[in-house]
Computed example of a mutant assay.
Amino acid sequence: MGVAFTFPGQGSQAVGMGKELADTYSEARAVFDEVDEALGEKLSDIMWNGPEETLTLTANAQPALMAVSIAAIRVMQARGLDLKAKVSYVAGHSLGEYSALCAAGMFTLADTARLLRIRGNAMQAAVPVGAGAMAAIIGLEHGDVDAVCAAASSEGPCQIANDNGGGQLVISGAKSAVEKAAALATEKGAKRAIMLPVSAPFHSALMGPAADAMREALAKVEKKDPLVPVIANVRAAPVSNAEEIAALLVEQVTGQVRWRETVEWFAANSVTTLYEIGAGKVLTGLARRIDKSVTGIAVNGPADIEAALASLNG
C-alpha cells in the first residue's frame, strides 16, 4: 500500500520543538544551524527557549516548523531512507507545503527558510491588525459554510480558508464579515462557531499583497521538479512540475487549503499510511476523522523516527 509524508502547518509549534532531535542527531543540528544562518539570526534559540509569543509570530513559526520537519527528514535519510523509493507523495498543510517541497528537493533548505520568512512577514503586513479575522465552524457541511460566507460578504470579503475535514471548516476575511458569517452559521445549525486568536486573515482575498510578494520571491529562487509529486493544497491533486507548483503556491496564499479532499484523494488512490513529519500530531488526528481507512503516524522524536524507519525499510 502507498505511503505519503505530510507536513504540519501553523498551530503545531511549541517551545522546545526539535531540541531532542538536535541533542540526539548531528544531522538535525546541522539543519537548525543552516536555517539560523539563512535567516541571519538564532531562530533555534527562540524555538527551544521561547518566549512562546515570539515563536508564535507568523514570521518565526513558519520557518521554525519547517526546520523541525526537515531535521527529521535529514535524520531519516542519513539512516537509509530513500524518499523516492519509499514515499509515493508529499503534502503539507499551508506552510507545510513548503516543508514538503523542501523534503522532496524542489527548494534548498536555505531558500525554503527565506521564503517562509518572506511569506510570514508579507501575510502579517497585508492587513492592518484587527481588520481581519478567522473563525472555526464546527458541524456544518462545506456547501452550507460556503453559503453563509456568501451571505456575509456584504460586510466584506469572507471565504473558506481551511477545509480540515471531520466537520471542521475555518473561514477567513474582513472581521465584520467573519463575525456575521459565524452568527449565520450558528443560526444554520453549526455546533460551534469559534473566533480564532490569529493575527491575520490567512487564506483569504485580503492576503492579495502577500500573494504578490510570494510571486516575486518564488520567481527568484532555484526550483527543481520534486522527487515525488506533491498534493497541492489548492488543487487536492498531484503536481510534479516545479513552475506549476510555484504558481499554485502563490494561489495558496489567498486560496483554500483543501485538506479533507487531500486525505480523501490519498484514500481513493491506495495511499493508506500518512507519516506526519515534524512538530505535533494535528494532521494525524485529522486523517483519522476524515477517512478510517487511512492510518496517520506522527514522527517527531527519536523513538518515532526509529519506528518509522523500521517500518519503511522493513
Rank of each mutant, 00 (worst) to 15 (best):
M106A: 11
G167I: 04
D304T: 05
E306P: 03
D36K: 12
G130R: 09
T6C: 15
K86V: 00
L169M: 14
R119P: 04
P201F: 12
P51I: 09
S240Q: 01
M106K: 06
M106H: 04
A174E: 14
G92I: 13
S154P: 00
E27L: 09
G11V: 08
A242R: 15
N300E: 15
G296D: 02
S44D: 11
A185I: 05
A246C: 05
T54F: 00
D23S: 12
F202T: 10
A126R: 01
A210F: 07
T272A: 13
L312F: 06
Y275H: 13
D225E: 00
A174N: 06
I194G: 06
S176Y: 05
E27H: 02
A205T: 12
D212L: 12
A125D: 12
A113W: 03
K188Q: 11
K180C: 02
V299W: 03
M207I: 08
I160T: 10
I297G: 05
P197R: 04
A28L: 03
V239E: 12
G189T: 09
R119K: 13
S154I: 14
A147H: 06
G2M: 14
A246F: 02
D45T: 13
S88A: 13
M106Q: 06
A174M: 10
K42W: 05
N60A: 03
K84G: 01
A210C: 10
A268D: 12
G132V: 04
P157Y: 13
L21R: 01
D33T: 15
I231H: 02
A307D: 15
R79T: 02
S153N: 09
G173Y: 01
R117D: 07
L249P: 08
A307H: 08
F7V: 14
S44L: 10
Y98M: 13
A183R: 00
L274F: 10
V230Q: 09
A59V: 12
M214S: 12
I73R: 09
S153Y: 09
L95R: 09
A242L: 02
A28P: 04
G2I: 14
A135C: 10
N164D: 07
H93P: 06
L95E: 14
C149Q: 04
A279G: 11
T295M: 10
V127I: 10
R79K: 15
P197G: 08
V234R: 07
